[in-house]
Amino acid sequence: MSMKEFVETGGSVLLIVLTLVQVAPIRINPWSAIARTIGKALNADLNEKMDANEAKTARYRILRFDDEIRHKMRHSKEHFDQIIEDVDTYERYCQDHPRFPNGKAVSATDNVKRTYEKCKDENSFL
């Protein structure tokens, strides 16, 4: 058996096995797994850009909220909860991406957290 025949036969056998596994009632679908892996690889740059945009948007909302706090504007607990979620998203992204410029919001996130705890302790949300 030549190498060409071996590859052709092996490829055919692999194709048949993968197709049978896909049809099997165990719900293992290798084609979907392969397509998902290829899709993730092809979209990695796009996903990274989307994650960075989400982090930048969260940072913008944090900075704006911090400005409002510093101007003595009061907020509801729900609004604080949303900003705390933004802080978590932003800090997680910064931790996972050490080259991302984080110095812009460090004091703002600290102030938001501190003010949130104060409002929670004093029950002084809007």
Rank of each mutant, 00 (worst) to 15 (best):
L18Y: 04
R61C: 01
K104P: 00
C119K: 14
I28V: 10
C119N: 15
M3K: 15
R36N: 10
V13L: 08
E8M: 13
K104W: 06
L15F: 14
A41G: 13
S76H: 02
L46G: 14
R99T: 13
Y116N: 03
S32D: 14
I83V: 09
S107R: 05
T9W: 12
N53G: 12
M3P: 08
L15K: 07
P101I: 01
N53W: 09
A35D: 03
E68R: 05
L46F: 14
A44L: 07
I69W: 02
K113D: 11
G103W: 07
D86H: 06
K104N: 09
W31F: 15
C94A: 14
S12K: 10
N111S: 09
K104T: 05
V106A: 02
A41T: 12
E54M: 11
D67I: 10
S12Y: 03
K118L: 15
K104G: 13
S107E: 07
N43W: 08
I34Y: 03
S2H: 05
K120M: 03
Q82D: 08
E117N: 08
C119W: 12
D51F: 14
E54G: 10
E5I: 11
T115E: 03
F65G: 00
Q82V: 03
N102P: 12
D110T: 12
S76N: 04
P25H: 09
I84N: 04
P98I: 01
T9V: 12
R92P: 05
E91G: 02
K104Y: 08
Y93I: 05
D96S: 12
R70L: 01
A35F: 05
T9K: 11
M3E: 14
R61S: 00
K77G: 04
Y93H: 06
K120Q: 07
I16F: 10
I69P: 00
S12D: 06
P25Y: 11
M73A: 07
K120E: 02
E48S: 09
C94E: 11
M3I: 14
Y116I: 02
T19S: 06
T19Y: 13
M3R: 13
A24S: 04
V87C: 06
E117M: 14
G11K: 11
A41I: 15
D81N: 06
K72D: 07
S32Y: 13
A58G: 01
H97S: 01
D110G: 10
F100D: 05
D66A: 08
S124G: 07
K118S: 10
T89I: 11
K118V: 13
Q82M: 06
L14S: 04
